[in-house]
């Protein structure tokens, strides 16, 4: 038995050292997000500011095709008032139709509309961005290993390239990007948006806000999930304790211990 344990231990050692070797990537920046943990919830202010960053900065290239404007007023989200969400929707031009004459027409957006795409189609998106498709942002946080911390790190990872790295035109150096090369220019700059609530729009603040918004957009029912999850687990624990004592009682008829 001892022998086996020592074998297992050796293997664990080998694999750990291996892991350390293969994971030469730099550690991601870590943020103490409000949505982490058993009771994690979103910071409404941050979600609303994050929407502002998304719509004023990211949305010029990145679509968010799985979200509708009504989601902005939904419980557990940025919780804009219905009027605000309607006004936001109406500020976009939506192509609708065909009408009774067979013509497509433009109209202001409604709550039920999906977020308007910045490009007509994927090919236009690619050709406008040097061949790189700006990924849809609806579930971007879940589509990247490292999730929220990864996106936050990339937004804060732009630097001058080291001397030994040559960059082509339209390619930028990013410390945290896979392969360190990214086709997106640093999108954030201090004061690039003007927050309505008076918060100072630093790069750090904006990236936190927009990542919070993107986490919500990827997982719009996160708050409900955390709330229900806690109740379910407490319920299961209480029920197992009750069943445990019932089991003891039943088995005591024949056996002192189960």
């Amino acid at each position: 038995m001892k022998k086996i344990k020592s074998i297992i231990f050796t293997f664990v050692l080998i694999f750990n050292s291996n892991l350390a070797l293969s994971a030469e990537k730099i550690d991601l920046l870590k943020v103490d997000w409000s949505f982490n943990g058993l009771f994690g919830t979103f910071d409404r202010g941050s979600l609303q500011r994050g929407y502002q960053v998304y719509t004023e900065v990211c949305a010029s290239c990145h679509s968010m095709k799985h979200l509708s404007y009504r989601n902005l007023a939904q419980e557990g989200g940025p919780e804009f008032s219905l009027e605000e969400a309607k006004a936001i929707a109406a500020s976009f031009i939506v192509v609708d139709g065909p009408d009774e004459y067979g013509e497509m027409f433009e109209r202001p957006g409604k709550l039920s509309d999906k977020f308007v795409n910045p490009y007509l189609n994927d090919n236009e998106a690619k050709s406008a961005n040097g061949g790189a498709y700006p990924p849809d942002m609806s579930v971007l946080v879940k589509a990247r290993g490292g999730g929220a911390n990864y996106l936050y790190s990339v937004l804060n990872g732009y630097e001058e390239p080291p001397a030994n790295i040559e960059l082509d035109d339209g390619v930028y150096y990013n410390k945290y990007m896979y392969g360190n090369k990214i086709k997106m220019a640093n999108p954030l700059d201090d004061g690039i948006v003007e927050y309505n609530d008076g918060t100072e729009a630093t790069i750090d603040q904006m990236s936190k806000d927009v990542v919070t918004f993107l986490t919500w957009s990827a997982e719009p029912h996160l708050e409900t999930r955390h709330r229900i999850g806690f109740k379910v687990i407490v319920y299961l624990i209480i029920l197992s304790i009750l069943v445990y004592f019932s089991m003891k009682r039943i088995w005591s008829r024949i056996e002192p211990k189960v």
Binding site: L239, S240, V243, Y244, S246, M247, W251, I254
Partner: peptide, 11 residues
């Protein structure tokens, strides 16, 4: 006997 034990483990 087994039902209650299975139930406990299942929980």
């Amino acid at each position: 006997y087994i039902v209650v034990k299975d139930l406990f483990a299942l929980l």
